[in-house]
């Protein structure tokens, strides 16, 4: 009478065959395993790096979760603040104007690059006409600052003002002249209208007298 299936018995045999091998393999020390791997032609350093990368991946929050956490923490921070005064109509209008401009974010930036600003002396990143012989290092700094500013504008359009402010601050360290770029000015205004300044060192440490308008992350309309 055959009651056990071939599949069940084969699996049992496979498990049995693996028992000793697993036991022996797992009892090898890390040093011995490294030696054997090296002898077999493995790049042990690279294998260690691969293992580290796996751990780092686990430790790194997923982008979408990170953004969600950022928004949640900002919303929580706001909910803990004292009730805000209703902003004046002037502030609301100014905020609406500036955030609408920043809300265009990348599109505005794109247009801005193709159509030079109307201002007589635009403090844009140095160009051959304004800075005929920029040092290579300086141009690198300006390029790095531009990348951060572009990212900052994108963050502002998503309502991530804290991130936007951080990036603008980083860009200012790299390229102080770019701080007077109209887009940066508008983004700074949007940050001021949209939330408390993220870094106290850029503002007086006294309590804010003019709280931002209501609405946690969405720019006023």
């Amino acid at each position: 009478m055959t009651t056990r299936t071939a599949q069940e018995l084969w699996q049992r045999l496979v498990d049995e065959a693996g028992e000793d091998l697993i036991e022996r393999a797992a009892s090898v020390s890390v040093a011995q395993a490294e030696k054997e791997l090296r002898d077999a032609g493995f790049d042990v350093k690279a294998e260690r790096a691969a293992a580290e990368a796996f751990l780092a991946e686990l430790e790194q929050p997923a982008d979408i979760d990170r953004r969600k956490e950022e928004l949640v923490s900002q919303a929580r921070a706001r909910s803990l603040r004292p009730a805000r005064k209703r902003p004046s109509t002037v502030v609301l209008l100014a905020a609406a104007a500036t955030t609408a401009a920043v809300g265009g974010g990348l599109l505005y930036a794109e247009l801005h690059e193709h159509a030079p600003p109307q201002q007589p002396a635009p403090p844009a990143p140095p160009s051959p006409t304004t800075n005929p012989s920029p040092a290579p290092v300086e141009s690198d700094l300006v390029a790095a600052a531009k990348a951060r500013r572009d990212e900052a504008f994108s963050a502002c359009t998503q309502g991530l003002y804290s991130r936007c402010a951080d990036l603008l601050d980083q860009a200012r360290q790299l390229d102080p002249a770019g701080e007077s770029d109209p887009r940066v000015v508008q983004a700074r205004a949007a940050i001021a209208a949209g939330q408390q300044p993220p870094k106290p060192e850029h503002r007086p440490p006294t309590p804010r007298k003019k709280p931002p308008p209501r609405g946690p992350e969405t720019p006023p309309k």
Binding site: V30, E36, F42, A51
Partner: peptide
């Protein structure tokens, strides 16, 4: 984990 993975990689090889 890093060391344990090397032991397992040795077995896999």
């Amino acid at each position: 984990y890093v060391g344990a993975r090397l032991v397992a990689l040795n077995f896999a090889h």
